[in-house]
Design a protein around this nucleic acid. Structure first.
Length: 781
DNA sequence: ACCTGGGTACTTTTT
DNA sequence: GTACCCAGGT
């Protein structure tokens, strides 16, 4: 036990060993927050204050939950799996699977991700004949999710003007549709769980008795509904409710735009009568100048709980600042600095390039590419969000839940099986008339449409027949073949990568079955080991307490796919420079960090300036960005930047005026913002290659995509196009084929022999220029 | 079924 | 500038 807390600093130890009362831990960046959280759990259990079953720990991301589990199982000699540690959504899902009757959901209800939800809304708007000019689907989605995040049902929404009244009506109809489909969107998982706790006294008191300690990570990011949910679970303080251990940092609240309400921290202190407030201000991450910068900057925010980070690491290097005349120049400077860092022995993956908005990554990506530096851009589609994977999942969903119209419509005619739009319209009309799911309305139709539809239903039924007979990965493979998905992508020219992803889905299913231990499902003894009372509701995922039955592997897998969308591309775990938005960088740290595009209108972003507290949130965002850096921090801006197809002339970000001058080292002459002329380069040691235009050409084949401008200057190419014959036989302007990205056109070649790299613009589907090894390119004749 | 052209929007994003 | 969506043509 003492070993647990021995290595903690005094504040951390104080937090970990607090008595069983509500507490708020203000944990600054890099102050050992996760460590405190897990050690608190380990301490509570190992001192016998609570059994593992009496713990509920909630996070926002799967990553954080996993990390917590991993650390905990290193600290405790007990199985951590069955403990209630997870994301808000994951835990609510578990809750609803156990109480599906009370929730009014089918046991095998499916979870809609944002894409599914949008599709569902589009379908609804069509059915309701709503003018989607007046109510764009995206806006409706925003409205519904916003309402749910506040804990509001259609009846609770304030509907004063006709516009919002109609939105409330759409919301109502959307709910009905979801019920009919047997699906729940993300917010619904939370809202419905909350309502059951609120309205069902038996269940409420059960859980209140069960969970003695509730621990919340990233408390500043909770929205109103999540806060209400916590309140229901914890119960009133005077009764024998749970005690709450909330960890957060108001200075790192950067998700107000999606409903996070940092004010929950104040409310929490008041409503839960928090008497223990502990600040973790000792930072173990950053050098002095970096920390000073962060502290000085954030002091400009008015509404703070107040905190000042300190370090014992020494001042370190000053923060290097560069004002470039253009975005290209900024990127070029970045390359030089990165090269220097690499010479000093840093590995690529310890260097991060951060930006406020994804659009800013382009120019930098181009420069890194031309410089031949390996990089990885975060963001974009994740594995389970890919179209082909979603198609396969839609089939699987139909096996589990034939009512799921979203899934039905997604694959009824994919791969194409001659079911046209007219037929589907008729089917939808018939289903609406009878108030049944689409699959049950098929027999109302006649003609060839009906026959094709019936064939589709038979196909699905045939697949469903296999469900009980074969293992999950076998089932997935069977579905891929029987549905014709595999065949479809085998035919398709650019289908190779998609085929690979589908194969990967089979692997994912196999891995899931192994990991979740289906077959060796948690037994009553195992539950006992966790300290769960015998009468307890679900102790483990996959157990239906009412029947004692196990949730099918299929249902569990589909849930997993919805709740955990997977990595943004596993990508060749190669050592690479990390590129991401500041938001995406939260929770990460790097030896060297570049914060780019520090211009008024960009960072702080212009859209934020008009919002209340917008600038403060931007400042917190900057604070998060700064505190990612361990040893080196670089700030840069461009006087001229191409954005939205226009050249913008930006001023220096106001944040420069809020940083401590003594910690900054300006590399370029500090000019009075734009207007001071473009002479900055004369005062600096940096240079960059001016824009080189790609020679125009005609693609070799008709469908090679439009070889228009690529959006960045291939500055580093240095006249590669003019050199003579090349062993690989490729030339500029030639159409090429590469399995992964389909057909494209060579824009430039660099280097010679084995080192040769091609820059290729791919057509619509690839839509990217990429660093590609020549060996992987096949010329198209 | 597939392609093309026009129109449009476009900050951040996890579950 | 460009990416994505949808409508309409082949």
């Amino acid at each position: 036990m003492s070993a647990l807390i021995q290595q903690l600093n005094p504040e951390q130890r104080a937090a970990v060993t607090l008595p069983a009362e509500n507490a708020l831990i203000l944990a600054g960046a890099g102050s050992g927050k996760t460590r405190v959280l897990t050690t608190r759990i380990a301490w509570l259990i190992s001192t016998g204050q609570v059994t593992p079953a009496g713990i509920l720990a909630v996070t926002f991301t799967n990553k954080a939950a996993k990390e917590m589990m991993a650390r905990l199982s290193a600290q405790l000699p007990i199985p951590v799996r069955g403990m209630w540690i997870g994301t808000f959504h994951g835990l609510c899902n578990r809750f609803l699977r156990a109480h599906w009757r009370e929730a009014g959901l089918p046991q095998t209800f499916q979870i809609l991700d944002i894409q599914d939800q949008l599709a569902s809304i589009k379908r609804l708007l069509k059915a309701l004949n709503v003018d989607d000019e007046r109510h764009p689907p995206k806006q409706v989605q925003w409205f519904i999710n916003g309402a749910k995040d506040q804990g509001l049902r259609p009846g609770d929404v304030e509907a004063r003007d006709p516009q919002s009244r109609q939105l409330a009506e759409i919301y109502l109809a959307y709910e009905a549709q979801c019920t009919r489909d047997g699906v729940a969107d993300f917010a619904e998982l939370l809202l419905r769980s909350y309502e059951i706790l609120r309205d069902n006294a038996a269940i409420r008191s059960h859980y209140r008795q069960r969970f003695r300690h509730i621990l919340v990570d990233e408390f500043q990011d909770t929205n109103r509904l999540q806060y209400q949910w916590l309140k229901q679970l914890a119960g009133p303080e005077d009764a024998q409710g749970a005690c709450v251990f909330a960890v957060g940092d108001d200075d790192q609240s950067i998700y107000a735009f999606r409903g996070a309400h940092a004010g929950n921290m104040d409310d929490y202190q008041r409503e839960f009568r928090v008497r223990h407030l502990i600040k973790l201000e000792r930072n173990y991450r950053s050098h002095g100048h970096i920390l000073d910068s962060a502290n000085t900057l954030i002091a400009n925010n008015a509404r703070r709980l107040g905190k000042n980070l300190r370090t014992e690491a020494g001042a370190g290097e000053p923060v290097r600042v560069f004002e470039a005349p253009s975005d290209y120049a900024e990127a070029q400077w970045l390359i030089e600095e990165i090269r220097q860092l690499l010479r000093e022995g840093l590995v690529h993956s310890e260097i991060a390039v951060l930006y406020r908005a994804n659009a800013l990554s382009r120019v930098i990506e181009g420069a890194l590419f031309n410089a031949g530096l390996p990089y990885r851009v975060y963001g974009g589609l994740r594995f389970f969000e890919r179209a082909e994977v979603k198609h396969a999942l839609a089939y699987l969903r139909l096996l589990d839940n034939p009512q799921d119209d979203t899934a039905f419509l997604r694959v009824v005619n994919f791969p194409a099986r001659g079911i046209g739009a007219r037929t589907l319209e008729q089917l939808q009309d018939a289903a609406r008339l009878r108030a049944t799911p689409l699959s049950e309305a098929v027999d109302a139709l006649g003609g060839r449409g009906a026959a094709s539809l019936q064939a589709f239903l038979d196909l699905v039924a045939q697949m469903r027949f296999q469900t009980a007979a074969i293992s999950l990965p076998e089932l997935v493979r069977h579905v891929l073949e029987a549905s014709g998905l595999n065949a479809h992508y085998r035919e398709e020219r650019e289908g190779q990568e998609r085929l690979e992803n589908l194969e990967e889905l089979v692997n994912a299913a196999a891995a899931f079955v192994t990991q979740e231990g289906f077959g060796l499902q948690a037994t009553a003894q195992q539950r006992q080991a966790l300290g769960a009372a015998p009468d307890s509701f679900a102790a483990t995922d996959g157990i239906d307490p009412a029947t004692g039955e196990t949730l099918s592997p299929l249902t569990a897998f589909l849930t997993h796919a919805a709740l955990e969308a997977g990595d943004n591309q596993a990508q060749n775990g190669q050592d690479a420079i990390q590129m991401m938005t500041v938001h995406a960088a939260k929770g990460l740290e790097f030896d060297a960090v570049f914060i780019t595009g520090l211009e008024e209108g960009l960072f702080p972003h212009e859209n934020a300036l008009s919002e209340t507290d917008g600038v403060e949130e931007e400042r917190r965002l900057m604070y998060v960005a700064i505190t990612r850096a361990r040893k080196r921090l670089y700030l840069s801006l461009a006087q001229t930047r191409m954005l939205h197809g226009q050249t913008r002339y930006n001023l220096r970000s106001r944040f420069f005026d809020e940083l401590p001058a003594e910690s900054l080292k300006w590399l370029s002459a500090k000019l009075p913002g734009f207007g001071g002329g473009f002479g900055a380069d004369q005062h600096s040691s940096w240079s960059y290659t001016p824009k080189v235009s790609v020679p125009s050409f005609t693609p070799a084949t008709s469908n090679a995509g439009s070889p228009s401008s690529t959006g960045f200057s291939p500055a580093g190419v240095r006249g590669a196009s003019s050199s003579g014959a090349r062993p690989h036989g490729l030339r500029i302007g030639q159409a090429v084929f590469h399995n992964k990205f389909g057909e494209g056109v060579v824009l430039s070649l660099e280097g010679n022999g084995e080192d040769t790299r091609a820059q290729v613009k791919f057509n619509r589907h690839g839509a990217k220029w990429l660093a590609l090894n020549i060996a992987k390119l096949t010329p198209v004749n």
